[in-house]
Design a protein around this nucleic acid. Structure first.
Lengths: 114, 114
DNA sequence: TGCGTAAATTCGCAATTTCGAATATACTAC
DNA sequence: GTAGTATATTCGAAATTGCGAATTTACGCA
């Protein structure tokens, strides 16, 4: 069962492992938003947004409800916001290392290894 | 910068988005362990373990120190354990939905869609 | 020096993820 | 019915990930 639990956790992490999906979750922090509103606010391609929303739906991180023409999304459990906040603290407490790490990653992408 | 922060968070989530890597982090909860000990405890292939450890190192989730012939790993920041514990609570509070979700996923893999 | 052990890296290869373009579905209003 | 809008899904290509086998690197010891 512990193995099962780890698989579950890994799937949740995987669902959150994309900047756009994190942006969506954070945008829903203040309350429900329609897909269209999310697209506008985050400046996303329509199909791309829909695909990311599908991932979040599949992992039950968000729930959707139809209202006439549009679909509103909301966070199923605010505990995920708690997790994101912890990550923010994590980020700032390791800021200097983090920055150099990010820089490293970028320069590697520019000039990929030797 | 907020975009940058999201990229950073996404990378951390990505690093944790694998059952084996979660198992490694949890195994390090109680203190340092050598790579060999981790391999034995988690019953991993040597190269596979090393690759997962490389991911965790790259994202600075673990730090390593050499001691003679072997390499000991430790968690850089116990706050990640906190995150995993929150996930556990999340898991149990949504247990019934989670189980059906997992079942769904498995059956889809067995008989992929229609 | 050479041998043995611990760990990291490299090498295919298969599976998964991500993207935008295109298409399909669902609803509203006329 | 048709037209228009909102959202979801499908498609194909590029990039990334995960794996075990094989190899390499690094260390301790005789």
């Amino acid at each position: 069962m512990s193995q099962e639990l780890r698989r579950f956790k890994a799937e949740i992490f995987q669902a959150l492992a994309h900047p756009t999906r994190i942006a969506i979750v954070e945008a829903l922090r203040g309350g429900d938003l329609s897909a269209g509103h999310l697209i506008e606010k985050l400046e996303l391609e329509q199909s791309n947004a829909s695909q990311h929303l599908a991932v979040l739906r599949a992992k039950q991180i968000v729930t959707s409800r139809k209202e006439g023409n549009q679909v509103f999304y909301s966070l199923r459990d605010p505990v995920l916001i708690e997790v994101l906040d912890i990550m923010k603290r994590y980020f700032y407490s390791h800021l200097s290392q983090t920055m150099s790490m990010l820089k490293e990653i970028r320069s590697e992408k520019a000039a990929p290894k030797k």
